[in-house]
C-alpha cells in the first residue's frame, strides 16, 4: 500500500528541549490512523511538522509524496487540518470563518458545508467570540470536512464536543474512510481511536513506541481474568506469563499474557472453576503499558511471577472502564 505520510528519524528541538527524538511514523493510503499519546508527548508537534508549520531539526518527512516544508501550497491543496487549539477571529461569524478557510484550501463544497452545519447543529451567524469551546471546534471541523482533501490531519478533533456530536463526528470519519480518504486522528481519548482506527501509533516522549493494527497490538498485552474457584490452588502465581495475581477468598484475579492463557485456564479448571470473566486488552491497557510506568512493567517482567516485588496490583477492577493507575 502507498504511504501517505512517511517520517523517518525525525528530530525536533525547541532550543534545549527535544520534542521529537528520532520519530518514525508511517500512515498508509486510505486508512484511519490513530495517533495516541498523552499531553506533551509530541502529537501536535508531529502534526505541525507534517504541515510545514515547524521545520524539522533532522530526519526526513514526506506527505503525499511532497516535502511539507517546501511544497506548502501544492500539498495543502490536498489536505485539511483541524488544529488542536482552535482560535477564531472574535469579530467574524462562524460562517465567515468556514467559508474563508474553505476558499483558501481550494475546493469548498457549499452543499456539503450546509449539510455539516446541520449535522453538527452549529449556528453560523454567531460571532466567534460568543462561541463555546465545543462550537469553536465545530467551526474548524466543518471547514475541514467540507473540503475535498485526500488527507485529513485532525488534532484531538473531538475535544469539547458532547457525546452526540462525537457520534456525528465518527459518522463523518467512517464516511471519509469509505471514500478512500486517509485520516490521521490524534487523540488521548482511547475509546475514540479504538472505535475508528484501522491502525494506531503510540507516541511517548517524542518517539513512536508501538505501531500496527489494533488486533496485532492486542497480542502484546495481557488479558484480565477473574475467576471464582471451589478452592484456590497454590502456585498460580508461578505459572509462566501470569502476573499480578490477587486472591480474595475464593476469587482470583490476574493479568495473563496470550501464551500463558492455556496453562492458566487448565489450572483454574482443575481447581473447580465456578465462574469466569475475562476482559480483552483494551487500548487503555496498551496505553498504560507504555505510560503507566514503564519501569514498573519492566520490573514485573524481570522478576517474573514472584509475588511481592512484582506485586503492582492494578487497583481498578477489570472492565470497570476507569483509568487504572499503576503507581498506586
Amino acid at each position: 500500500m502507498d504511504s501517505v505520510v512517511e517520517m523517518t528519524g525525525v528530530v525536533k528541538r525547541f532550543g534545549a528541549v527535544t520534542a521529537l527524538d528520532g520519530l518514525d511514523f508511517e500512515v498508509a493510503a486510505g486508512e484511519v490512523h490513530g495517533f495516541l499519546g498523552p499531553n506533551g508527548s509530541g502529537k501536535s508537534t508531529t502534526l505541525r511538522l507534517l504541515l510545514g508549520l515547524l521545520r524539522s531539526s533532522a530526519g526526513s518527512i514526506r506527505v503525499l509524496g511532497l516535502d511539507p516544508w517546501h511544497d506548502v501550497a501544492a500539498l495543502h491543496r490536498r489536505l485539511a487540518y483541524v488544529p488542536g487549539d482552535v482560535a477564531l477571529w472574535p469579530n467574524l461569524t462562524g460562517g465567515e470563518v468556514i467559508d474563508l478557510l474553505g476558499r483558501l484550501q481550494g475546493v469548498h463544497d457549499r452543499a456539503r458545508r450546509d449539510r455539516l452545519l446541520e449535522l453538527f447543529e452549529l449556528d453560523p451567524s454567531k460571532k466567534s467570540r460568543t462561541y463555546s469551546k465545543g462550537n469553536r471546534q465545530k467551526v474548524a471541523l466543518v471547514a475541514a470536512l467540507a473540503t475535498d482533501a485526500e488527507l485529513f490531519l485532525l488534532d484531538e478533533p473531538t475535544s469539547g464536543l458532547d457525546p452526540l456530536m462525537e457520534d456525528a463526528f465518527r459518522g463523518c470519519v467512517r464516511e471519509l474512510r469509505a471514500q478512500g480518504r486517509t485520516v490521521v486522528l490524534s487523540s488521548h481519548i482511547l475509546s475514540e481511536a479504538e472505535a475508528l482506527s484501522d491502525r494506531v501509533s503510540i507516541i511517548r516522549a517524542g518517539k513512536v513506541v508501538e505501531t500496527g493494527p489494533l488486533e496485532q497490538l492486542r497480542h502484546l498485552t495481557r488479558t484480565s481474568v477473574t475467576a471464582d474457584l471451589a478452592a484456590v490452588p497454590p502456585g498460580l502465581d508461578v505459572l509462566p506469563g501470569v502476573h499480578d495475581v490477587v486472591v480474595t477468598n475464593h476469587r482470583v484475579t490476574a493479568q495473563v499474557e496470550p501464551a500463558g492463557l492455556g496453562p492458566f485456564l487448565d489450572a483454574l479448571t482443575s481447581a473447580g472453576l465456578q465462574s469466569l470473566t475475562s476482559q480483552p486488552p483494551t487500548l487503555e491497557d496498551l496505553f498504560l503499558r507504555h505510560y503507566g510506568d514503564i519501569s514498573a512493567g519492566d520490573a514485573a517482567a524481570a522478576v517474573g511471577t514472584t509475588t511481592g516485588r512484582s506485586g503492582v496490583p492494578r487497583p481498578g477492577l477489570p472492565g470497570d472502564g476507569g483509568r487504572r493507575s499503576r503507581d498506586a
Binding site: W89, L92, G95, E96, V97, D99, L100, R103, S125, K127
Partner: peptide
C-alpha cells in the same frame, strides 16, 4: 467579557475570498 452593547448576529455565509480580504477586514 461583554462590552456595553450586546453582540448581534452576523452573516451566516462569508464573502472573504482570501488572505488580503481577511487583512482588510481585520
Amino acid at each position: 467579557g461583554a462590552g456595553l452593547r450586546a453582540e448581534r448576529p452576523g452573516p451566516s455565509a462569508g464573502s472573504l475570498a482570501g488572505v488580503w480580504d481577511l487583512a482588510v477586514r481585520l
